[in-house]
Simulated scan of single mutants.
Amino acid sequence: MTQDSQETVVGRITSVFGVKGWLKVYSYTDPKEGILGYPNWILDLDGKRIPVKLEEGRRQGQAIVIRLKGINDRELARTYCGAEVRVPTADLPELPEGEYYWRQLQGLEVFTVEGECLGQVDHLIETGSNDVLVVHATAGSIDQRERLIPYLPDQVVREVDLVGHKLVVDWDPEF
């Protein structure tokens, strides 16, 4: 298992906050404050992996601000700006039946209900009304088009088979 598959990206440090070593974090969790529930972070900064402990954090307007253990100075905090925040995948809560983390859907082969291969899930985007699967063509797909398919379980997404590494959609390949 690769290092990336044992860790999940949950946010990014964006900037310093104040003069006492606090940092602003853009959280990918839902809700945004969910990132504060993980005490052990691995910062990925310019190819370096830095294990850190979350000392404290809170919502500050629309942002999340945090203080890392041992970081009490603005200039030292600044050196962490731009770091990707990762947590051990084992620390993520188990989801209810039929719900998936985005990372679980990435890389799945996408087939229509008729069995036509549309490609592979590259990533997802959040649009507000629903998430969207970004499907890139593969050598086995019916054409070389990129497709944006709404992630709507039971309507568009008919089956998610993590073991079989495939996702079945009720989707017109011409759309």
Rank of each mutant, 00 (worst) to 15 (best):
V87I: 09
P88S: 10
Y80S: 06
A77Q: 01
D73W: 03
R67L: 03
L76R: 11
E94H: 14
P88K: 12
A90T: 12
V65H: 01
L68R: 00
V85L: 03
P93H: 05
A63Q: 14
A63Y: 15
T89S: 12
R86E: 06
G70T: 04
I64D: 00
K69T: 13
V85A: 04
L68F: 09
R74A: 09
L76S: 14
D91Q: 12
D91E: 11
V65R: 02
Y80T: 10
R74W: 09
G82V: 05
P93E: 06
P88G: 07
A63C: 11
V65P: 01
T79R: 10
P88N: 08
D91C: 07
V87W: 01
E84Q: 15
L92K: 06
E94T: 15
L68V: 07
N72P: 05
I66N: 00
E94K: 15
D73K: 05
V85C: 05
T89V: 11
G70E: 05
V85P: 01
R86A: 07
R67A: 08
G82L: 07
L68M: 06
E84Y: 15
R78S: 10
R78M: 10
A90K: 15
D91V: 05
K69M: 12
L76W: 14
L68W: 03
I66K: 00
R86D: 06
R86H: 14
V65T: 11
G70Y: 09
R86T: 06
T89I: 06
Y80L: 15
P88Q: 09
I71E: 00
T79E: 14
I71A: 04
L76G: 10
V87M: 02
R86G: 04
C81V: 09
L68S: 01
D73H: 09
K69I: 08
E84I: 13
A83Y: 11
R78K: 15
A90H: 12
A90V: 14
A77L: 05
A77W: 02
L92N: 03
T89Y: 08
R78L: 12
I66C: 01
R86F: 14
K69E: 15
P88Y: 09
V87D: 00
P93K: 09
L76P: 06
N72T: 13
G70Q: 06
I64V: 08
T79C: 08
N72I: 11
L68D: 00
K69L: 13
L92F: 09
P93V: 03
D91P: 05
N72Y: 15
A63W: 15
Y80D: 03
K69A: 14
V85I: 13
L76V: 15
G82D: 04
R67K: 13
E75L: 09
V65K: 01
T79S: 14
P88F: 05
I71Y: 04
G70S: 06
V87K: 01
P88E: 10
A63V: 11
